[in-house]
């Protein structure tokens, strides 16, 4: 659920992004309303609206007057590109730092990643 780690509206935006990336929300489909988000996460509707607007500003969502919010065409590709750029900084850098702290060599690290592949299969 929503936690205190980052602003709530940012977390709402990220949840919508994840839903689009994972295919739960398809392009050109309607996004739940601000009030629905507010009820579901028990947050203030203005905060939910701020999260939705963040994605409108980025061209991920767009508004159909009198109907509601929809996922823009090309939104998924755009989001994946953005997340890939963040991946290195968010995951790889911190992993290497932790590995260095624990004295894990690059070879061991590579082996672990290969081992991780099997978990997914």
């Amino acid at each position: 659920m929503i936690d205190d780690s980052r602003p709530i509206y940012v977390q709402i935006a990220e949840r919508i992004e994840n839903d689009i990336i994972e295919g739960g929300l398809l392009e050109e489909s309607q996004v739940p309303s601000t009030n629905q988000f507010a009820s579901f996460y028990q947050i203030n509707p203005a905060t939910a609206g701020k999260g939705v607007n963040l994605l409108v500003d980025q061209g991920i969502l767009y508004k159909k007057r009198g109907v509601g919010m929809f996922v823009a065409t090309g939104a998924r590709e755009k989001l994946i590109k953005k997340r890939r750029e963040l991946f290195f900084e968010q995951y790889v850098v911190s992993m290497i730092h932790e590995a260095e702290k624990l004295g894990i060599t690059r070879e061991e690290l590579t082996k672990m990643i290969q081992k991780g592949d099997k978990i997914d299969e």
């Binding site: 601000t34 009030n35 507010a38 009820s39 028990q42 947050i43 203030n44 509707p45």
Partner: peptide, 12 residues
Amino acid sequence: SIFYDRLLEDYG
């Protein structure tokens, strides 16, 4: 929790 749910719904 019912109170919070109803409050947010109706406020919306």
